[in-house]
Write a protein that binds this DNA or RNA. Sequence first.
DNA 1: TAATATCTATGATATATGTCATGTTTTACG
DNA 2: CGTAAAACATGACATATATCATAGATATTA
Lengths: 237, 237
Amino acid sequence: MFYVTLNLIVSAMSKCQQCIVKQFNALKALGKEDLIRISGCKTSKSVKKGEILFREGESVNGIYCIKDGVCKLSKLSANGKEQIVKLVVRGDLIGQRSLVTDEKSNLTAIAVNEMQVCFIPKSEVLHDLSRNASFSLDMLQDMAKELRLADNIIVDMAQKPVKQRLADVLIYLYNTFGNDDKDYLGVILSREDYASIVGTATESAIRILSQFKKEGLISTRGKHIKILDLEGLKRIE
Amino acid sequence: MFYVTLNLIVSAMSKCQQCIVKQFNALKALGKEDLIRISGCKTSKSVKKGEILFREGESVNGIYCIKDGVCKLSKLSANGKEQIVKLVVRGDLIGQRSLVTDEKSNLTAIAVNEMQVCFIPKSEVLHDLSRNASFSLDMLQDMAKELRLADNIIVDMAQKPVKQRLADVLIYLYNTFGNDDKDYLGVILSREDYASIVGTATESAIRILSQFKKEGLISTRGKHIKILDLEGLKRIE
DNA sequence: TAATATCTATGATATATGTCATGTTTTACG
DNA sequence: CGTAAAACATGACATATATCATAGATATTA
């Protein structure tokens, strides 16, 4: 009985070999032996909403695998405003960049809601990168996709007006997080967060959301946002 | 005598083993044998100003190594305007992303001035990626750096005003291309190109450059721009 | 559950940027 | 070298977005 309980606990702390989350990232390319090795030296932890995983300018010293929850990657601009560069979700890895270039983090990672993450030390990942070509290729593919996304964001920032960018964000959130049981978006962000993703003033984000409400595109209840007319949002320009 | 001449010609077409440009990119991680193999199947070509290497939506089917010249990577936005995402210079590789993800190009590559490039077929590069971990790691590092740069551009686009972004571009061009023998910037771009990098209307770019002239920060002669007060440009905000 | 802090909302106004029109200069090319 | 096409320049004006002020709603916690 003791052993059964212990196994359950260990399983709750999850062995990498059995973790399904890795299907969404480069870790799926690792063989059983490597997974067991990594499993032995990884640390799991839960991160509360608002907690910081790492700050801009700090060393990360490994990668985080997001088992659950959402995290924002942001950077302070010269004028002191936070710009959110990316939302990181279940299955994503963060910290690969600093790992590979051996530099301090360029971004700050803050939990948007309760998260479950695993931390894998740098040395273990580098070990696998140096031996496992298919792991490296997978990592390369992930970064290539991130880069494509980043390029598209640059174009949008440069060419689309704020209203359209905000509509795009709502559509993205809907596609990525879906709805909760009451048809509200599956992730809750403050208006300030919306502004920081779109790259505008908080008041402007609030104003445009109010306008969307008047136009029947969305409804809100506090921070909860419900999308009423997805097609209408797509037509915004 | 015949052999000497032949050697010179072959050398002008440059063997990868002897090419110094690769020092600036991931190809430096390849061993002599791989370089000889690649040298045998690469094609060199010169590209005239304004010519297109590849278009958004096309397959690239390999990577280009830039031996000389400058190239702009751009993307058309929904409103039909060109946004320049990156300037590619001597030593850079392009096409790695599409190669790794096996997707069509997200960007269009157009020569800004006369270029010398080598094209290496996809299969050869994939061969090396699958066998040479240090090559893969180098490629990963390059992409990680590109990604960091892209994130910084997103933040700047979102938070810095047009005037500051244009000043930043001038500073970047000065740092990257230096001056010609008459102290003009070492790369010549149209006002429209400046606008497409900054992400603004051509008239706005022209207006701000005129303002910089009046303030004694730069002088211009047609497309040629001379930086008179670098520190002044850095102070713009 | 009341009190407080934080977040949301909206008006008034300032500033930044885009658009259209038009004239001038530069560049490309026969 | 002259001419046409392209690029540059600038004014007038329209629109988008930011900022400041203030009120109201929501969330947090004692």
